[in-house]
Amino acid sequence: MRHRSFYEATARQRIVEILDAHSFAELVGPEQRTVSPHMQALQLPVAFDDGVVVGRGTLHTKPVLIAAQEGGFVGGAVGEVHGAKIVGLLERARRERPAAALLLIDSGGVRLHEANAGLIAVSEIIRAILAARSDGVTIIAAIGGASGCFGGMGIAAACCSAVVMSEEGRLALSGPEVIETAHGVEEFDSRDRALVWRTMGGKHRYLLEDCDVLVDGDMEGFRAGIAAAMEAPQSLTLEALEREQAMLARRLQIFSSSRDGRDVWRTLGWPNPETVPLVPTDVFLAQAAALRAA
């Protein structure tokens, strides 16, 4: 069987291939036509699921709840209905206590067509993630779609128990175009794909420990990576946050003069930082492990 690309798949295809075969049952499916009233008011095309598929199933026979954003529909951006479906899924997780709630994120963040309602929806997702984690639910963010994980969804991902990414995944707060619009192409050339990748791509995030599991970009890689992340639950405690705070403070000290991913990687001890983008994932992970140990 050929390797199916996570990057190119639709939200529905991702769910089907990540979960155990035939285990997925959708909640509030497209036949309920929960379309965005705000998009309708603007006479823009709507989607019957408002760009996010939610439901339950099993992964390696363990019960999970899952949400998958459709990056092809308005860049996976979060509107009122879209956000409410994810919030509802996380509330359900607090009650059902699945082995994990999986968020397959593929989103530019707030859906600007819904402006205020989109901003609030993202805020409610962040709050719902944190509340579920306080209740002990493990929440895994998986990032590897064409729309990446940006804006408020970048904050949401960082609030999850673990982040699984592929090399093609991008995780950031502000998208490259937003930064370029604000401060010009000299600040950040959004069309320089290599630069974008060195700043927010999967390997860089992994080396900075913003990504817990780095996987190959195929479905099997994500399936295995998510299962692995589920085995290492992280609880949201004062002590854990104090450790994270210390880590982030250290990061500022060590890399505060870094201007490029290559500077960061060099400081981390990579002898030839230019080669980081080129090495295959398994070789990269082995080298990274060796460096961490050293």
């Binding site: 970048g154 960082a158 600040e187 950040f188 990061r251 991913g261």
Partner: peptide
């Protein structure tokens, strides 16, 4: 909105407040 902040993983820092 700076490239340096993104390089350092600003989403992580902002999320820490939440």
């Amino acid at each position: 909105l700076r490239q340096r902040d993104e390089l350092l993983g600003i989403h992580r820092y902002v999320a820490l407040i939440s």
